[in-house]
């Protein structure tokens, strides 16, 4: 099989290398560096473990069904988390109600309809179809809605704007909500004002996530539908959007998990008022309900000097972290269950 040497010829002696092969040696700087980067990673993880364990140790004793069911009280032994929980639920409903449709719509427009190139690709498919009817129709669209098509440069500017918005400190959104919703629109310092503020806060996050999900759907799916005679809108609605939906929902849940932990913008919008009310779970009442939320309650308790308030603050944190954990698990399951490999 392998022709090495002709049979009978003795194998040639090997040529000498310039020096023998070096044996493995320890390189202290190599080891040191490896331990250094490993150690830094370990320290970061250790800090996280310290954080979680210190909260759990402090708060676990105060966790009970009563804690979840009771309303706030000036007596730390009686104070409960119920109003905060209800407030956060209503806040999330309002936030999603406003942020999701607007965010997803903006993403659809920016990703699929805004640029000339999108129109051009539509025209190309139609030209290939050689259909006069569609040509007339496309021409009509161009004339009447041509102003909706913008140059890629404009889309890029909107992009930059959105990514900058996502990096604006959340407290600035609080100032915006305070001036617009409370100041100008005259909504009282309520769950509604807080929810609207959080909606504005997560809008850029939802737009970015939804655009990524839309972009992950291969263009061939859309072009396939258009080659069958669907308009761009039909192709997007019937093919692209359903395919992108799991990704959009995953992004939405992650955006909500950002909103549910936000404290600063709520304080700016609503202040910190000690109250013992129990807000209604009906979002339509939100305009009249005082602003309660898990992080606000935790802040209020943490800010109290008595040690027993620290314990229930920790218990509140456990509930908040558990909520976040569940939301993230749902997002992960959604992503794993429905994510297609194209």
């Amino acid at each position: 099989m392998t022709t090495l040497e002709a049979p009978g010829t003795p194998p040639p002696p090997p040529a000498a290398a310039t020096r023998p092969l070096a044996r493995k040696r320890s390189r202290p700087s190599e080891q040191l560096f490896k331990w250094l980067v490993m150690g830094l990673t370990a320290i970061t993880i250790a800090m996280l473990i310290w954080l979680i364990s210190s909260v759990v140790i402090k708060g676990a004793g105060s966790l009970s069904w009563a804690f979840l069911a009771d309303k706030p009280s000036s007596n730390p032994d009686k104070a409960g988390f119920n109003s905060a929980l209800r407030g956060s639920v209503v806040l999330m409903i309002i936030t999603i109600f406003f942020a999701w449709p607007i965010g997803v719509a903006a993403a659809l427009y920016l990703e699929k309809f805004a640029t000339q190139s999108a129109e051009a690709s539509e025209r190309k498919v139609r030209e290939r179809l050689g259909s006069g009817v569609s040509g007339v129709h496309a021409g009509w669209l161009r004339v009447r809605l041509s102003w909706l098509r913008v140059r890629p440069r404009v889309v890029h500017l909107v992009d930059v704007n959105i990514s900058n918005l996502a990096a604006v400190p959340s407290i600035i959104y609080g100032l915006l909500g305070l001036a617009i919703f409370v100041g100008i629109l005259g909504i009282s310092k309520s769950l509604l004002a807080g929810g609207l503020t959080l909606a504005v806060l997560i809008l850029p996050i939802i737009i970015i996530a939804a655009r990524e999900a839309l972009r992950a759907v291969p263009i061939s799916i859309e072009q396939g539908a258009m080659a069958l005679g669907a308009t761009r809108w039909q192709a997007v609605r019937s093919q692209v959007f359903p395919a992108a939906l799991p990704g959009i929902l995953t992004g939405t849940i992650l955006a909500m998990s950002r909103a549910i932990g936000e404290t600063a913008p709520l304080i700016v919008v609503g202040g910190i008022v000690f109250g013992t009310a129990v807000p209604s779970l009906n979002p339509l009442d939100a305009g009249n309900e005082a602003l309660f939320a898990m992080p606000l309650q935790i802040y209020f308790w943490t800010d109290q000097p008595q040690a027993s308030f620290q314990a229930i603050a920790a218990a509140g944190i456990i509930v908040l972290l558990a909520t976040l954990l569940v939301m993230n698990l749902v997002a992960i399951i959604l992503r794993n269950r429905y994510s297609k490999r194209w």
């Binding site: 090997p14 040529a15 000498a16 290398a17 310039t18 023998p20 092969l21 070096a22 044996r23 493995k24 040696r25």
Partner: peptide, 14 residues
């Protein structure tokens, strides 16, 4: 793989 007669795959080769 002998290199100059020595096995370079040997685990103690650097």
């Amino acid at each position: 793989i002998l290199f100059g007669g020595e096995d370079l795959l040997s685990s103690d080769v650097d």
